[in-house]
C-alpha cells in the first residue's frame, strides 16, 4: 500500500469530524443575526447569553448537579472497584455483569425505567431524581477507570500493611486511596462531564422545579437556529475539552 494513502484517509475523516465543531465556534463570534453569512466579529451572543437570567440559572443548576453526581458516583464507584479488586464474594460476576449492562444499554432504556421507579415511589422529579439517575449512569465509568488503575498495582503493599496490623479500613485509607488517587480524579472529571452533557436521561427524570442546561439547549434548538446556542455550545466545548485534557494529564503523569 502506498504510504500516503492511510494518512490522507485519517486526515480526511478527522477533518469531517471536526468541521461542524469548527463552524460552530467561528459562527459564535458572528455579528450577523441570520447566522449563515459572516457579518463581522462580535461578542454579542455571549453577552445576550449571560444577560438571560433563566439561562444563567440553568447553568448553575447544571453545575451543581454535575458536581454532586460526579462526587457521589466517584465515592461509590471507587468503593465498588476496590471491593471487586480485593474481595471474594458471592455474586461478584453478577455485579460486574450488571455494571457492564448499565454501560452498554441504550440511555433511553435506563431513562424510562428510572422514571417508572420515581413515579411509583412518589419522588418529586427535580434535583434528587436527576442526581440518582446521573450517579447511576456515571457509576460504571468510574468503576472501570479505577479498576484499570488497580490492575497494575503491586499486591505486596496492602499485604504488608495488613501484616503490620492495619485494619482493612486503615489499609484502604493509607495505602489504596493514595494509589488510586489519579484514577479517582479522572473518574470524577469524566462523571462531571457526562452529567453536564446528558440529554436523554435528563429529559425523562427532570421536573419544572429544576431546569438544567442541556434541556434548555434542547428546547432552543428544536426549532430554527439560535445564535446564542453557538456561543453556549462553544463555551461547553471549551469546558469539556479542558476537563478531558486535565484528566489525561493526571493519568499520564501518574504513570511515570
Amino acid at each position: 500500500m502506498k504510504h500516503w494513502l492511510p494518512r490522507a484517509y485519517l486526515t480526511t475523516v478527522y477533518a469531517l469530524l471536526y468541521l461542524p465543531i469548527l463552524v460552530l465556534v467561528v459562527f459564535s463570534f458572528n455579528s450577523s443575526r441570520t447566522g449563515y453569512r459572516w457579518g463581522g466579529l462580535s461578542l454579542q451572543w455571549y453577552e445576550s447569553l449571560f444577560s438571560n437570567h433563566a439561562m444563567v440559572q440553568a447553568m448553575w443548576n447544571s453545575l451543581w448537579l454535575a458536581l454532586a453526581a460526579a462526587t457521589v458516583s466517584t465515592i461509590i464507584g471507587a468503593l465498588t472497584a476496590l471491593a471487586l479488586h480485593r474481595y471474594r464474594f458471592r455474586g461478584k460476576r453478577v455485579l460486574r455483569g450488571m455494571l457492564f449492562v448499565v454501560m452498554m444499554s441504550p440511555e433511553i432504556v435506563l431513562a424510562i425505567s428510572l422514571l417508572a421507579l420515581f413515579l411509583l415511589v412518589g419522588l418529586q422529579l427535580g434535583f434528587v431524581s436527576l442526581l440518582l439517575a446521573h450517579v447511576t449512569f456515571c457509576l460504571p465509568f468510574v468503576v472501570i477507570t479505577v479498576m484499570a488503575r488497580l490492575s497494575g498495582f503491586d499486591e505486596s503493599l496492602p499485604e504488608a500493611a495488613r501484616d503490620l496490623g492495619a485494619s482493612d479500613f486503615t489499609m484502604t485509607r493509607t495505602v489504596l486511596i493514595p494509589v488510586i488517587m489519579p484514577a479517582l480524579l479522572a473518574g470524577w472529571l469524566l462523571g462531571f462531564t457526562l452529567s453536564l452533557d446528558d440529554v436523554v436521561v435528563s429529559t425523562f427524570v427532570s421536573g419544572p422545579s429544576y431546569e438544567i442546561l442541556p434541556l434548555r439547549i434542547y428546547s432552543m434548538v428544536r426549532v430554527g437556529l439560535k445564535p446564542e446556542v453557538n456561543a453556549l455550545g462553544t463555551l461547553l466545548l471549551v469546558f469539556s475539552l479542558t476537563m478531558l485534557i486535565l484528566s489525561q494529564w493526571i493519568l499520564t503523569r501518574s504513570k511515570r
Partner: peptide, 28 residues
C-alpha cells in the same frame, strides 16, 4: 489521534448535532 477520537465522547452531543444543522440548513 486517539485523544482526538475521545474528544467527542466528552463533548455535548446535542451541541454537535446542532452544529450539523448549521451546515445542512436550506441557507446553510
Amino acid at each position: 489521534l486517539i485523544f482526538l477520537l475521545i474528544v467527542p465522547f466528552w463533548t455535548n452531543s446535542l451541541v454537535r448535532t446542532y452544529a450539523l444543522k448549521l451546515l445542512l440548513a436550506t441557507n446553510g
